[in-house]
């Protein structure tokens, strides 16, 4: 399987502003002082070798959208955050606008950051395309239809050219979606949200965002660990610090990097990917969270090593 992250920011899109770009430039120019970077190749190599990811790039600001390539002809996507626009542009660039495709979309829940990209999901405008939207959430069809409606959006849902279907999933029941086995589970989050376990050819990806885990709720932790059991990749809501998640932001419906490590260790998962980044965090802070998470895994490792990754818009993980 191949997983492509198109949107990784939590709560709302978070563009990198002019001041942040200037700060990166100034830092890079100072570090490059005295070096002879007179060709694009030399400058690129400098960025690659001498600058950190946060210094030379950005984690990005689009809200949740993850593509899971399970090998078949159809597309499989998790969530319709603002990142889905970039995904759709890439898909259309690949096939051309006239070759009809089938898009399967799993929706975790209908908070804005997870559906706001749908009005700009270009394949919906093109007759011949098939778009099938799945969720365990009770109100996902109503929310998605309601977005494409006046006065909030000028193109009515009923005017969309593609064939669009909604499939309400039952929790804990496996479905065949795009050739993969997909199972949904309820998560602790205001207005409900659902995680999805995607299995194909012996590989497993778990998409679990907008989900709070409480250290005192042992039974719920064990239930979550069972859902993550032996997953090759767990895409995890690590929005808060542990301190925030057990104090000021308790019951706000999100989890921490520390809980991600502990749950993946309980589950015997292979790789944890930090996801749904806090909009307040800049690139340097996110890079710090990444390093700290790697260290926390080392400190708490029992026998098996858990790999740690951090999502950014554009990251591709081969599983």
């Amino acid at each position: 399987m191949k997983v492509t992250f198109w949107g990784t920011r939590g709560s709302l899109p978070t563009p990198l502003g002019a001041r942040s770009v200037r700060k990166k430039l100034v830092n890079a120019l100072v570090k490059a002082a005295g070096k002879n970077l007179d060709t694009p190749e030399k400058a690129d190599a400098f960025c690659e070798q001498e600058l950190s990811f946060a210094e030379a790039g950005t984690f990005g600001g689009n809200s949740s959208c993850v593509q899971v390539d399970v090998g078949g002809p159809d597309y499989l996507i998790c969530d319709l955050g603002s990142g889905v626009r970039e995904f759709s542009l890439a898909a259309i660039a690949r096939h051309g606008p006239k070759a009809p495709q089938t898009y399967h979309i799993l929706v975790s829940h209908v908070h804005w950051d997870h559906i706001m990209g749908f009005p700009f999901f270009i394949p919906c405008f093109i007759p011949g395309n098939k778009v099938i939207i799945y969720s365990c959430h009770d109100k996902f069809e109503q929310a998605i239809r309601g977005q494409n409606h006046e006065p909030c959006f000028p193109v009515e849902f009923t005017a969309l050219g593609a064939t669009i279907e909604f499939v309400k999933m039952e929790i804990d029941k496996p479905y065949d979606i795009a050739g993969a086995k997909v199972t949904g589970t309820p998560q602790m989050h205001g207005n409900d949200s659902y995680g999805y376990r995607i299995e194909k050819d012996g590989k497993t990806v778990v998409y679990t965002t907008d989900s709070e885990h409480k250290p005192e709720d042992r039974a719920e932790m064990e239930r979550a660990a069972k859902f993550f059991r032996h997953a090759d990749l767990v895409i995890f809501d690590a929005m808060y610090s542990l301190a925030d998640s057990v104090s000021m932001k308790e019951d706000w419906g999100h989890s921490s990097n520390v809980m991600g490590v502990e749950l993946c260790q309980m589950a015997g998962a292979r790789k944890l990917c930090l996801f749904h980044h806090e909009p307040v965090y800049d690139d340097a802070r996110l890079e710090g969270v990444f390093k700290e998470t790697i260290r926390f895994e080392e400190i708490t490792r029992a026998d098996k090593k858990l790999e740690v990754a951090i999502a950014y818009d554009g990251l591709v993980l081969e599983i």
Binding site: S241, L242, A243, N257, E292, T293, F296
Partner: peptide
């Protein structure tokens, strides 16, 4: 030292 590291990683210095 390890407990101090987890304290820092968890972000407890204001709490």
């Amino acid at each position: 030292p390890l407990v101090k590291e987890v304290y820092d990683i968890g972000g407890f210095k204001h709490l």
